[in-house]
Design a protein around this nucleic acid. Structure first.
Lengths: 194, 194
DNA sequence: ATAGTTTATTGAACTAGGTTAAGACCGGCC
DNA sequence: GGCCGGTCTTAACCTAGTTCAATAAACTAT
């Protein structure tokens, strides 16, 4: 498992010396995640921030009626995990599992703190990552309130074409905030139109 | 208009020397916003990031059917504005206006960049701000998908009791993703119960 | 190959929330 | 004072999306 992907992702926002690169990579823990395997579990503390090196993960919330709600998919090049649990060290309300056999880099909380202290440019890096993520989440909220399920599905397909290969429809439905049955109807309507 | 509020908000996350404080405050532009006045408008570039010193603002999105969707309220101590427009310098899709006579500090984009360059600890400050905001938005998405309008309204009241004094019900309805008429029903049901 | 499990689809009955329209209330303002 | 524009509520009807139940198709594991 090599560091090319993660270093290039970071290189898009900040540049590092060779020493800094070496220090950073020394903090990373490689891990494999099999399809269906859970890497973080509801109720446990999130000890690591997760970078997807290959494959695909999803993070979901299980409500009081035991229904899962997908809050995020993450493919190659994305960070994921429960930020709330990670930063405050409280039990997570989310579960993260592999949608395909995947490889991830784990950055433990203590390592993250060392990293930010020793190379403050990483503050910048994560500031930019979180800022972009925030913009995306705001769009998602708007969409969920102003677009119909049909529109949301079409925009999802346009925005994340690469996900369709990994993600079962029922999880896409969940991500869109509808039932799998209704997604079926939506898909049918779209097929009939074209 | 004095800088005590904004400095204390920042002091909660990073500490500054007197020189740094002076430099930071020299970048801020004070502005008054009257109730109903728009401080950022859909279609225009967002030139400044906004800190609410007193009063209350709201940011909303107007959809193709001309319906407004409130995406954020901001009272004393909160940053607001359209991050997407601000960072990429593209026309904003949001409008921000005063819900009450308010005072804000404006931080122009160029000043923000100078600030981050000269005092990299501000990268840390904004990293933390965005990270917390991201956590909040994720909760909001979960809620919109897993809670009923009744539950969302009650949780809103618990979470932001201070907003009720400023915010007309129709905007609360919009924030919750329902119509004002339906919020009326919800409120009535709650009254009858207790 | 076969049985068992998970995923996707279909249709009928249902409900949370939307729409439309009307009236009550309230505050500003000439 | 009286009018006017905005806010809130009520009620009757409407619809996007849910629930439930049955079936088909696709994986998995023996």
């Amino acid at each position: 498992m090599n560091t090319a992907t993660i270093l290039s992702a970071i290189g898009r926002h900040i540049s590092l010396t060779d020493d800094e690169t070496a220090f950073f990579t020394s903090l990373l823990l490689p891990q494999r995640v099999r399809q269906g395997e859970m890497i973080e579990r509801e109720g446990e503390l999130t000890r690591c921030f997760i970078f997807v090196n290959a494959g695909c993960l999803m993070t979901y919330f299980t409500d009081k009626e035991d229904v899962d709600h997908v809050i995020q998919f993450a493919t190659t090049g994305w960070w994921t995990g429960d930020l709330h649990s990670f930063t405050k060290q409280i039990p997570s309300i989310y579960t993260t599992k592999g949608l395909a056999d995947s490889e991830v880099w784990l950055l433990p909380k203590a390592s993250m703190e060392q990293l930010l202290e020793r190379i403050p440019r990483f503050e910048r890096y994560f500031r930019i990552i979180f800022q972009n993520s925030l913009i995306t989440q705001q769009h998602r909220i708007i969409q969920s309130y102003s677009a119909t399920a049909d529109e949301r599905y079409q925009q999802f397909r346009e925005k994340y074409p690469s996900l369709e290969q990994y993600v079962p429809l029922k999880y896409i439905a969940s991500y869109l905030g509808i039932t799998p049955e209704f997604l079926s109807k939506v898909r049918r309507r779209l097929m009939e139109k074209s």
